[in-house]
Design a protein around this nucleic acid. Sequence first.
DNA 1: GAGTTTGAAACT
DNA 2: CAGTTTCAAACTC
Length: 734
Amino acid sequence: MDVVSPELNSLLPDEIMDTEAIEDIPHSQPDGAAVQPDQLPISISTTTKTTDSVTGTTVSTSGLQKLTAPFTISAANHQIILNKVASAQATEAAKSAGTQPQVIKQEGQKLLVTAIGKSGQPIVLQLPHTGSKPGVSQTAGDPKSQAPQFKVVTIGGRSELKQVVGSAGNQVTTLQAQQLKAVQIAKKTPTSSAAPIKFIITKTVNSKGLSPQTSVSPVIAGRVLTQNSPGMPPRTITISEPHNTSIQSLPGKKIAISPLKTPSKVTVVSVASPTSNASQKSVALPVNVALGQQILTVQQSTSASPVKVAASQNIKPVQSVAVGGVGGSQFKTIIPLATQPNVQQIQVPGSRFHYVRLVTATTASSTGQPSGPSTTKPMVVSTGAVRMSVPIVQAQTIKQVAPKPLTSAAVVTTTQTQQRLIMPATPLPQIQPNFTNLPPGTVLAPAPGGGNVGYAVVPAQYVTQLQQSPFVTLASSSNFPASTGIQTQARLPLNGLSTAEATSRPRKPCNCTKSQCLKLYCDCFANGEFCNNCNCNNCFNNLEHETERLKAIKTCLDRNPEAFKPKIGKGKEGESDRRHSKGCNCKRSGCLKNYCECYEAKIMCSSICKCVGCKNFEESPERKTLMHLADAAEVRVQQQTAAKTKLSSQISDLLMRTTPVISSGGGRLPYTFVTKEVLEATCECLLEQAKKAEQTHQPQAETERLILEEFGHCLMRIISSAGKAKADCASINC
DNA sequence: GAGTTTGAAACT
DNA sequence: CAGTTTCAAACTC
């Protein structure tokens, strides 16, 4: 079983990793037995029943299906539908579909379980009950929470039945007002039975228009019960609160889930598959579900990685990563780190967080393809042999994916190595920091020296810095403006700059000398980036000092949970779209110099600014003057650039026109081939031809023709000689 | 490039 | 929360 280094784990928020939430489920436990009394009323039904008796884990995804309340069940498309209420309608629908729906109803919850695929192993997903948790942003009486909607969980067609049960947690909650965006299980190949199961849980989408700024993100712990062998009790996946009381944690199995406070938050859930011995196991999945969040993605291991039901701790289930985002501006990137073979990075532009966990997998094959529904997030899966929680459909070919701009349909998955995302293997201490507030672009990756199981917070930039070709980029929403892929370091607009600006403009190197680049003084650190090509001294803002960096991040977040959030955000209604979140405090600059963060962001000061002598307002003549000067300067620069470009182009054209070109090779021939001797020889040839014509008494017209013909021959010889000379020169590298 | 100014961040 | 110190960027010369 993989173990995460204690020091790193201690720095990780418990939302990310909670090992206590994982527990084993008794074999004899009846379906739905794992359901907790306070479980969230969510029903999950699988429409198809898998018949794979060998692996029992094969899952094929047929595309995501958006589910609206209550929900519908279609047996034909191998889908698991999560819905708040397991209504009789769903049961009837399942029955009508020819499946064997199971309805689990307990107090405070409604659960519907239907058979998936052909194996007859149901998947039950149980979600925590929302009403019981104090501090929950929404109460049971909240109309918004009354009609939660979830998206469809798609499971590969031929795998065994599995139960996905959302367990109740005392904490959970905002799920009710949210729409479960997608739970998808990757299709599994029938061949392998020992591979772990991957689950991806994404955050729920805030379909209710709830405030994206919801400050608290209750965590819904998840429990996953899986079963492998046919005839065994149904596999159950339970999503429950991190600190489920009745759940025993499975050692070595951990789930990392990011907090989902804001819409841009990302939830990452990795679930280790149960061992083969256990007929039924449950893994608690801390699922962060908050208002304005979207996600619930459960992905099962692909074909190469069959599900392991046994209790052995050596087998690591594939880790899943879910990305959700508000406004749809989210994606994630998974990239193997150069320094860590097992490191895998996931970049979430929406929140710019990265959660990475890699383990060596016995088999490697992951494929991806554009997910059908428009709701599916565009993503790019790299060849890093990473199993990821993206809608992945079996692919027979392995493709090397080059970084490219994310498009809504761009999905490529390749797996060449045997690395997998996994969960922490050891129990992790409760970590308070909320990952949603981590520096933008942060990546959780195995820390140096921590083996392949440690986590390291890696800035998104590091992905670019490492220049790793294999990568995975997921765009959780088509609305995300950047979507430029990993090489452009996609990230949210920073400080009012558009994504294009942020990505196109090279970051200025810092010059920190005393802060070790681990304080917000350092722009690199403040932007969640590693220092790269900076001029800093004693820099700790790198992967080599990940432990210190994590601590620094934690310190900053403790001091200010908003520390790593963009300072330039949307202002009040009626005000400018962009304004400084805290306002400036300028005293001497008049807010017309770059000392002023408002002015630097090219926005005007707002009512929340505490500046003195502010001149950075709409009608300010000084500001207008400065703006005009700046505009004029910019125009001059542009004009100069255009003039240079034009001049260069003209020179190039002139050279092209005046330079002889070899028709055969296409290359230019130097004038030096037409030397004086060549000219004289040519003229002699022409004169000789003229003499011959004269001696033979040729007519004038014929004489001219012969001379011109000879001239042509001369030219051809010149060109031929020049070409040979050029070729000879090239052959000897002259 | 060195020195100064500035304001955010960090600290008390 | 306010005052002070620290820090690095912005600016000036």
